[in-house]
Design a protein around this nucleic acid. Sequence first.
DNA 1: ATTATATATTGCTATATCGCGATTTAACGA
DNA 2: TCGTTAAATCGCGATATAGCAATATATAAT
Lengths: 101, 101
Amino acid sequence: MSSTELDEMIKALSHPVRRDILNWLKQPELYFSDQEHPLSFGVCAGLIDQKTGLSQSTVSAHLATLQRAGFISRKKVGQWNFFARNEEIIKQFLSRLNEQL
Amino acid sequence: MSSTELDEMIKALSHPVRRDILNWLKQPELYFSDQEHPLSFGVCAGLIDQKTGLSQSTVSAHLATLQRAGFISRKKVGQWNFFARNEEIIKQFLSRLNEQL
DNA sequence: ATTATATATTGCTATATCGCGATTTAACGA
DNA sequence: TCGTTAAATCGCGATATAGCAATATATAAT
């Protein structure tokens, strides 16, 4: 992970809503039990929109930021987009931070 | 550490120069060997100014940000201000992030 | 084809952050 | 007291970020 990538990751975490989203995605069955599609796909954007209480476009931008940073992945199924944590990247990020900080 | 404090800490880290400063302070004898005062006091602001290449006022603001976040402490001796890492807080921050992320 | 749904993208305003030079404050020395 | 040095604070312009409504795009259903 380059220094530029690390920077992008930390910046992605520097907004409480984005950290909330990452946390919700940690236990989808707890926070998104009402999803009609299997949670194994991930959580679809609309439900995340609802949970934040922010507008659809704002949340879409937050999700894009998290994805660019590598923290989440997107899986498109039909007209829905499902998001899930990228645990491997998150682990790498944490160990990098533990060394470097 | 409250959620507001955590937020302030992550924001403090979300600027590369502030992360650089934290890193330099990890090994003062390596990066600030030319300091005339004992490094046990910490590193004085002027030397950090030089090392960043940014203006005095800009670096002063960065140092204030790091201090508000709790990452560094300030020790005033005569007309100089010496800064040092607050290892305990940094450790707490990392373990909090490891849990929460 | 048309309509409906899900979500990304665009255009905009408001606010926050960064960086600088200038000024102020504080401590020291002559 | 006066000048010097160190560093914080102020005022400013430039850029980045966040939020929204409106629009565009893509898929699905009728």
